[in-house]
Amino acid sequence: MSAPATPPPMVEMVDLNKWFGSHHVLRDITLGLAPGEKMVLCGPSGSGKSTLIRCVNGLETFQEGKLRVGKTVMDGSGEALAAVRRATGMVFQHFNLFPHLTVMDNLTLGPIYTRGEPEDSAIARAKPLLERVLLTSETWKYPGQLSGGQRQRVAIARALMLEPEVMLFDEPTSALDPEMIHEVLDVMEDLAADGQSMIVVTHEMGFASRVADLVVFMDAGEIVEAAPPDAFFAAPSTDRAKTFVGHIAREGDQ
């Protein structure tokens, strides 16, 4: 056996298949995310990209294929699930902050109750994270008192509290007003510049071309095309990708 030239992927899927009832939503998905790299998943709605990213941290189960996150092979056991969730942090389209808790408690609750971290240590780690997402002044507010962009930045800080090996973003800017999208994207680009591995489901093609190492285009549960952003946007090789890029480009002109 020869040693691999490149480090093994952080996240690896091999021939992953998933059905909702008889509906085949993920078909023979094979992909790998290298450490420190950023993967952007795009495609029309219903293409399976959200389902795919939710499989990574076990929010969705799959029927066939292999999934490995870090050192953990997802075998459906409770231990594997816990290990995968320790290794990943997730940011949702609708933020899913806990409305009955302050911003600070939203950040510290996870580490305190899943790792048994002492409260003062969790608070000490939370402060620089809130500073990083520019929300120090909102520390003791409740989510309902914040704007959408602020809420999503809290959600990012909350996921970072777990010091995840991989960050998963599931359409993080789709529920935001246009003027708030950039403040969230700025934080994500800042993270990317720091070498955080991430998988991002998004329609923000500007973000994809600036940040992504690999753009993966999905349609009808299949990976149709995968290429670095320059190549993907300049010359999509399939008709389906061409149509999609064309739509996106027209929106960008407006």
Partner: peptide, 14 residues
Amino acid sequence: PAGQEEAAKALGMP
């Protein structure tokens, strides 16, 4: 909303 439990799951809470 289901998202509340999903967020808690993603944070690894049992």
